[in-house]
């Protein structure tokens, strides 16, 4: 399907341009990496299958399966808890696979109802020394290291938008997933909120 993949348009469109935004500073206070997943699914555990799913996922995908609002990654695959018995499973970033319609490992499939969400979300990786200050302008939950550590995840609201948020590392690096149709509004909020710290937007294919 490589001939059709060039037809694909990212959710953000022109809403977040690669480069520097806001105040001119040596090192941007906030850095955004635009991530394009190869594939993403909503998973809902079949009735009574949550434990079996966790075992299968650890075996088949090598992922410690989250049973609470947490995030786990192995290589370029990661899983985020999105609700009771619900997860977002993401393989990426893009460029690794040219298959648009991919299938889950069979061992996992038998325990879940899976729904393709590859194009439903814009995923961003956020980092930088002033990231928490910028996020605090819209994220209502407590992101202080004592309360929210690498591996923690949350579904919450940012500037009237519902997002998935997870912490990847201590640096800090956060991941955020926002609905495709709202990616532009999220970008507008992020650009405004990070402007005073200096914002750098990068193509996440490099990470």
């Amino acid at each position: 399907m490589s001939e059709t993949s060039t037809l694909w348009r990212p959710p953000l469109g022109d809403a977040l341009k690669i480069g520097r935004h806001g105040r001119r500073v040596d090192r941007a206070g906030v850095t955004v990496d635009i991530v394009r997943p190869a594939r993403a699914w909503s998973l809902v555990a079949r009735r009574g299958a949550a434990d079996a799913l966790a075992i299968a996922a650890e075996q088949e995908l090598g992922l410690p399966w989250p049973k609470a609002p947490r995030y786990a990654a192995r290589g370029s695959t990661f899983v985020v808890w999105t609700g009771p018995d619900r997860w977002l499973l993401v393989e990426g970033p893009a460029g690794m696979s040219d298959s648009v319609r991919a299938t889950l490992p069979a061992g996992v499939t038998s325990h879940v109802y899976a729904t393709d969400q590859t194009d439903a979300l814009q995923i961003l990786h956020l980092s930088g020394p002033r990231l928490r200050d910028a996020l605090a302008k819209g994220v209502t939950i407590d992101l202080h290291p004592r309360s929210f550590a690498p591996g923690n995840a949350a579904i919450t609201q940012v500037s009237h938008l519902t997002v998935n948020l997870w912490q990847i590392s201590d640096d800090p690096i956060f991941g955020v997933a926002v609905a495709r149709s709202l990616a532009g509004s999220f970008a507008s909020w992020l650009t405004a909120s990070a402007a005073e710290f200096g914002l750098e937007v990068r193509d996440g294919a490099d990470i």
């Binding site: 469109g13 022109d14 009237h160 938008l161 609905a179 495709r180 509004s185 405004a192």
Partner: peptide
């Protein structure tokens, strides 16, 4: 705060908006 003008509330754009 941020929510004025075009940012008064979030706007959803369709896949063919551009």
């Amino acid at each position: 705060g941020h929510h004025r003008g075009k940012d008064f509330r979030p706007t959803r754009l369709t896949p063919t908006h551009a």
